[in-house]
Design a binder for these strands. Structure first.
Lengths: 328, 328
DNA sequence: CGGGTGCGTGCTCATATGAGCATCACTCCT
DNA sequence: AGGAGTGATGCTCATATGAGCACGCACCCG
């Protein structure tokens, strides 16, 4: 028989046999020995045929993402920033509101998966977190603790307290809400609020939180409800100090360092240090304009996992992905 | 073993891990143990992840046909009619001339593959066989024997003799052409021609043929150059006898039986019995109008293999595929 | 001729793999 | 509470698998 120069192009007969063998092996799940017996070949010949079939592209194996998750970027992001989990959703040029809902759905799934009964779940605040709570259908019977006070301006349905209650309802576990604003006019008011029984109860649990879900606000470019809630001088001061991102009322600069600001006295929220000590903090944020802020939060170790979209992943990966602060 | 409850939908984290594991296993070819070590899992866990990944469709394995060969129909046809080889080409609604060229290319590939140096290759005649010889680029150094005389009406380039010479040139082996018409006016002329040294030499080799390639002519509906070459009374007689197909000057009825006809005396060709005794006869014919004739030839065991197109395969498989004459 | 030389095939044995089973944790139902 | 059921996990052992080796064969070249 004329041999078509070694595996380059199989003749029709060999091709058909290879296809039949490959089907038996890969689709029907038969063993090579069974196939060898069936076709009257040695099992070595079968192995060789299968190798050729794969090498020549006759057998094509692909890993497809059934959900709208970008597996490649997710893994790349996880590896590059040493995250526990990174989930990158595909963004088919959708409007912002849809992106948020999309992020919310995926983040809700992740939360369902990660949270166990004995966890104490810390919940941040924001439109994104709200989207998560809307999409959340299953959650272990964990304890749910609010991480910070709320901001005015939301409708009742969107209020931070409702948000936490809704998550608690899905979970069925204990709920510790914070019936207070995120920022109050002066330190004394804040101190007073912190001693309010319910608020104090929630704050007391901040050290017991095992997992948390938070949103990220961006200051450069500005995309943060917290920023919008501040007065002009306050904003100016923070910007002068180089604020880039905001997580649960904690302000972070380019380097991922927390900014020391008098504002901290007036914020009812988990502290930055407490946040950093939680073993699993999932940050959820998307949109290219937030990429820099997300990067700061991740590099500052305020979050251990990230749910975001392709545009952010591309920006973070294109940047100096290698330049990650290793330790705390 | 299907996980009843939530096995269908994995959470994002599990999904990403499954994707990473599947990639390592299926694309990078790592062993499950290696993967287990890398991910900090037991190899059993890895195996289950992979099972789930396949079951949930995360990993998709498909057998693709690089050539334009319909693997499924080929195998079905081969099995249904107990053929040595069946090759069904995809027919994307192409004009007839293109179909012939297409068949020719694939048949040429098959021939290259099947024929060995020590084979004696019998070559039939017709436009289809001509297409094969045009597409033939590699052939073992076998002996090439013409199976029948030629018909007039072809151009010089298309003449049967040229056809055989061309194949012989590719092969590089001995060539035994038949410089004679397929049908002559009377038995005496035929007898005379058969004794012509060159013709006699070729005919003498007809019993030594180990492999042959033939075309199939159809009479119902009419699609045969042999039929066109006959006179009206001859045609009428054959049709009265129930002729359906023609192979190398042998006329075959619906049942696959050879028709006894006085015409046989005037045909310069291999006999039907000789043809049937060749261990490997590849018939090449396509187009739905030839399906019935192809079926007769196959069922009459005048061919052991078939190269055809989808339309024919569908017709043959839709028909009483089970009703195959078993023996000779 | 005769000894490489390359290729295809099949054998051997260490290793990877899968089916089945035991265990454990957890839930649910009384 | 207290089983009984369920699912996840890891172990055991027979079997499948792949890498490497040896043989046989044809070809090539001296």
């Amino acid at each position: 028989m004329v041999r078509a120069t070694k595996g380059a192009r199989l003749g029709p007969a060999e091709l058909l046999q290879a296809a039949a063998v490959a089907r038996r092996f890969y689709l029907d799940g038969r063993s090579k020995i069974e196939i060898a017996d069936e076709f009257g070949l040695s099992r070595f010949k079968v192995a060789r045929i299968l190798d050729d079939a794969r090498a020549s592209g006759l057998v094509r194996i692909e890993i497809t993402t059934p959900a709208e998750i970008d597996i490649e970027r997710s893994e790349a992001l996880r590896a590059a920033f040493d995250l526990h989990y990174a989930v990158v959703i595909s963004t088919p040029a959708e409007p912002e509101s849809s992106l948020r809902a999309h992020l919310g759905r995926v983040a809700a799934d992740l939360l369902s998966e990660l949270v166990a009964d004995d966890d104490v779940l810390g919940v941040g605040w924001g439109r994104t977190i709200n989207a998560i709570s809307s999409a959340l259908t299953d959650l272990a019977r964990c304890t749910v603790v609010q991480l910070s006070g709320a901001l005015t301006g939301m409708t009742v349905d969107e209020s931070s307290v409702e948000l936490v209650r809704r998550i608690g309802a899905v979970s069925g576990g204990l709920v510790y809400p914070i019936y207070a604003p995120l920022i109050v006019p002066d330190a004394a008011t804040a101190a007073g609020l912190r001693q309010q029984p319910q608020v104090a109860e929630a704050i007391r649990h901040h050290d017991e939180i095992t997992k948390a879900i938070v949103a990220i606000g961006s200051w450069d470019p500005p995309n943060s409800q917290v920023r919008d809630a501040l007065s002009d001088p306050e904003r100016a001061r923070l910007e002068h100090d180089g604020v880039l991102a905001e997580v649960c009322g904690t302000f972070i600069d380019h380097e991922g360092q927390e900014l020391a600001t008098p504002l901290a006295q007036r914020v009812i929220s988990i502290t930055g240090e407490q946040l950093r000590s939680i073993s699993e903090v999932v940050a959820v944020a998307g949109g290219p304009e937030k990429a820099a802020a997300i990067r700061a939060v991740i590099c500052g170790r305020y979050a251990t996992s990230l749910v975001t979209d392709q545009s952010v992943a591309d920006i973070l990966l294109a940047q100096d992905a290698g330049k990650i602060p290793a330790g705390a």
